[in-house]
Write a protein that binds this DNA or RNA. Structure first.
Length: 573
DNA sequence: GCCGTTTTCGGCCCGACTGTTTTCAGTCG
């Protein structure tokens, strides 16, 4: 089950959207949005909290606390149900289309009766929007483009969503009597950035109890197919999950087979054929007499083919089979190698956890160093000032103690020309500066490239944050000549971020690979806005693995002294 | 609806961009 806080946050978000669509007080809608973010980022579980405890959460007052309690007691909230009855779910769903907000969605519904993305697409192609106030030809064109963008994402979910489902199922099935082994495989084990469906693999002598337990899990909405070897279900959130049960003797071969990727497996099976062997999900066999060679562990299967065991994150047919053959697979960076985080926020800007809470949570995770990098002043909505920044620095210096070194930094805004928020004098006061693009996403490729190159050339910019600025499923990456940007980063000693946030994962793995060829170093950061986001680090590390990175490549895996030397080297550019 | 060493009422994250309008509404970060 999802975290109770996330369930509540989803409900509050929906209520905020419905308020906005029905044209209620905009500030009221925003209040619910804020409360949703705050609840999602709250460290303690809200289920079972009383009104007093709930109201201690910032942004939650008497009314929202009451609704949360009502939700846990009755399973629903009357106020939400009332608005749900007024507005078809499809109207809200239409606002996933970029450029279509609540006001326009409501106009489309009221004037034309449109209540789905498909209905909107049809209406546009039939020209039915013409004449509708506020919907000119350019708007229609932009909406069509937005629909394409939204559609490209359908059917895939963010990696954290899939992981939560998979870990819950593995946990539940592992407890079933007779279950000998259970784990997730497929694209989730390879840690692809989004997941189409979840593959669960289990080993048992008798698959029936596992299949029954699986089909009866609380998160299962529908059983799609049910058999002895395989059962497929759809979860209440619409995610397809396949369970395959194999004999323990086939475990290794099955795990290898169901982890994929398809292209990787094709390459591995070619190796088998050349050795007079045949590889299937049941094992590695001799072609001549059909006798079983090995099948119990993945390591054995790879070894018998003359290959080193290939980490799942590398299994994409990007040269890993050859590397496994001649023993040149990299020693991949792991979660345990990470020593620090250089991009995090607090309540001083848009975080929902205080400085003290963030530091305590980071310490609890055993980080050796941690940079607080709240937004800089040129992002107007953050209302940052020089005085606030300096006051935060004083506070950090006063709080700093113990085994974790706290660095004071900021997340600068790269303006359209490549400049940043402050002058050299003020910038020199920071221990570390991340610089990110937060506006003017649609510049030409040449302008965007120059913008990034100039930012790299700034002696006070140590890290470029979430370089492509994409938001998976919502906003495409900006267009730049990445090789030119990477060359500038390499030349100037500017690290590029691997942002671990599940809807960013930015740089993506293919661009990390390209950047590495230019000698670029990387910072795996969480961009945490709450203590619970610190756990996203695993997803950033996985993207780094997929790009073959080792600890040498990642500055946040370095000891503090080496990191400091890297940061100090920058102003001499 | 929330919140307060400016306020228990009256603000609230502010500004830019876009397409549409002929003075501005909606969307976005």
């Amino acid at each position: 089950m999802p975290r109770a806080n996330d369930t509540v946050a989803t409900l509050l978000e929906e209520y905020a959207d419905l308020l906005a669509i029905t044209g209620g007080d905009a500030f009221r809608a925003r209040t619910y949005e804020k409360a949703a973010r705050s609840v999602a980022g709250h460290h303690a579980d809200v289920s079972g909290m009383d009104a007093k405890a709930l109201q201690a959460i910032p942004g939650v007052g008497a009314s929202i606390a009451e609704k949360i309690i009502e939700f846990f007691q009755t399973g629903s909230v009357a106020a939400v149900e009332k608005l749900r009855a007024k507005i078809p779910a499809g109207v809200r769903a239409m606002t996933v289309v970029p450029g279509l907000g609540p006001r326009k969605a409501m106009i489309l519904y009221e004037q034309l009766g449109i209540e789905s993305v498909a209905g909107l697409e049809e209406a546009i192609s039939e020209g039915r929007l013409a004449g509708l106030r506020g919907f000119g030809p350019k708007t229609a064109e932009n909406l069509l483009h937005g629909i394409q963008l939204a559609r490209a994402q359908t059917g895939r979910v963010q990696i954290d969503t899939a992981m939560a489902v998979a870990e819950e199922i593995v946990g539940a099935l592992s407890a079933v009597p007779g279950c000998l082994r259970c784990t997730y495989a497929g694209s989730l084990r390879r840690m692809r950035e989004t997941i189409g469906d979840v593959d669960i693999l289990a080993a048992a002598d008798d698959p029936k109890p596992l299949m029954t337990a699986f089909a009866n899990l609380p998160l299962v909405a529908e059983v799609i197919v049910r058999g002895d070897k395989k059962t497929s279900v759809r979860t209440t959130a619409g995610l397809q999950v396949d369970l395959r049960v194999v004999p323990l003797a086939s475990w290794g071969a099955a795990l290898q087979y169901f982890t994929g990727s398809k292209q990787h497996n094709v390459r591995v099976r070619e190796m088998a054929v050349r050795k007079g062997l045949k590889l299937s999900e049941y094992g590695l066999y001799k072609v001549e007499d059909g006798s079983l060679v090995v099948s119990e562990t993945e390591e054995e299967v790879y070894a018998r083919l003359g290959l080193a065991w290939v980490p799942p994150t590398l299994r994409e047919d990007r040269g890993e089979v050859d590397a496994a053959l001649d023993g040149t697979l990299p020693k991949l960076i792991t979660l345990e190698d990470i020593r620090g985080d250089l991009h995090t926020h607090t309540t001083l800007t848009d975080g929902v956890s205080t400085l003290e809470e963030m530091l305590a949570a980071a310490r609890a995770r055993g980080l050796k160093y941690y940079a607080v990098t709240d937004h800089a002043k040129n992002l107007p909505m953050q209302r940052m000032t020089d005085a606030k920044m300096l006051a935060q620095r004083e506070k950090i210096r006063a709080l700093a103690s113990g085994k974790m070194t706290v660095l004071h930094g900021t997340e600068l805004n790269i303006d359209p020309d490549g400049g940043v928020d402050w002058d050299a004098d003020f910038l020199s006061g920071f221990d570390v500066c991340v610089a990110s693009v937060h506006s003017h996403f649609t510049q030409s490729q040449a302008e965007m490239t120059r913008r990034f190159v100039r930012a790299c050339e700034n002696p006070y910019v140590h890290i470029i944050g979430h370089p492509t600025t994409r938001q998976i499923g919502r906003r495409p990456p900006v267009e730049a000549d990445w090789d030119e940007v990477f060359a500038a980063a390499g030349r100037t000693g500017t690290a590029l971020e691997i942002n671990s946030y599940p809807d960013r994962l930015d740089l993506p793995d293919d661009l990390i690979l390209r950047a590495k060829r230019h000698g670029v170093k990387f910072a795996i950061n969480t961009d945490s806005h709450s203590t619970v986001h610190l756990g996203h680090l695993r997803f950033g590390v996985a993207q780094a693995q997929r790009a073959w990175l080792t600890t040498d490549d990642v500055i946040t895996a370095w000891p503090l002294s080496k990191l400091r030397a890297f940061l100090r080297a920058k102003p001499r550019v």
